[in-house]
Design a protein around this nucleic acid. Structure first.
Lengths: 172, 172
DNA sequence: TTGATTGCAAAGCATTTGCATGCTA
DNA sequence: TAGCATGCAAATGCTTTGCAATCAA
């Protein structure tokens, strides 16, 4: 950590290094898209990023955003994530340790988690099949805490009968 | 197991039961699609199934296949799988124990595997976050045994140098 | 200058939807 | 007969491609 305002110096260097190595060109669009991307939280759909970029410069085209996201992926700054709907999401990849996702099928919230044991076990499984893993993605679908509550409310309201005490496990 | 020729009696019963319960209708198309689906191997894209069905009855429409696959999923006979490209694949779900996938990014081969420990550990992780898992999908991407070999050949051919002994781990 | 990059529009691809017709229960 | 199911065509949603104009090196 160097300063208060996020400078993303390292990331930008990585990007420029990548550009240089490949004989590509540094353009204002690419700079802008990178900046906007770096300021976002995790799991941004390509199109969402497009809208954010639009706000800052309405002249940037959708195509450029899509292309630049691929470029960022190549550069190791972003990582493609498929959450299960059709879309492609991107998350930060530079200096971000690997993690997996729990996705609430009710509200769509995405919880990130990491387990070294899980990782190790997966590698062991791959080994067993002489499979050489490059990366993996684990998605656990289900209900987040909040939505389990709601579910319960609905259920008890629907069943109508015994007004039993509901174990409320509030969060936040 | 009852007979030599696959009758899929149980599956068909499940399907008809589902149809009945929901007040839906048994149609020749649905019967045909179910039959073709049951005869396939794992991981069939919706469109592939469409072509297989077409062979048997060119009058069946794409839409019906898509709709029926969803119906089979509802009935618990099929399960949607997303392998990472845009498509939706389906695999048998009735009487098929759960498993995960290793996908070769080179040749596309899909290896199924299962590990009770992995499952347990995932549940434990979910628990930690008060997350109620309904299902999950674990995809390990990498190189299958065969493609690792090819890779090695290319590499050694490219480097050209020391003609070292290559450890050949042939399968099949 | 040169060729990478852009942005528009059009194309692609898998999937979904509207709707008139058909068919099951 | 009632209304679910079908199949066509059109629509959708996300992403990619073609291409002439633009711009960085």
């Amino acid at each position: 950590m160097s300063g208060d305002k996020s400078d993303f110096k390292e990331e930008k260097e990585v990007f420029e290094e990548h550009i240089r190595k490949r004989g590509l060109r540094k353009t204002s669009q690419r700079e802008l898209i990178l900046e906007v991307f770096l300021e976002t939280e995790d799991h941004l759909a390509s199109e969402d990023l497009y809208w954010l970029v639009q706000k800052k410069d309405p002249n940037v085209g959708q195509t450029t955003v899509y292309r630049t996201l691929k470029l960022l992926t190549d550069a190791g700054l972003a990582r493609e994530v498929r959450l299960g709907d059709g879309r492609t999401y991107y998350e930060h990849h530079f200096d971000h340790e690997h993690h997996d996702h729990m996705i609430c099928t009710e509200c769509g919230v995405v919880i990130e988690f990491f387990s070294a044991e899980l990782e190790a076990m997966q590698d062991a499984m791959a080994d067993k099949y002489n499979f050489k893993p490059t990366h993996h993605s684990l998605r656990i679908l289900g209900l987040c805490e909040k939505c389990q509550e709601k579910e319960e409310e609905v259920t008890s309201a629907a069943s109508g009968a015994q007004p039993r005490v509901r174990v409320k496990t509030t969060i936040n």
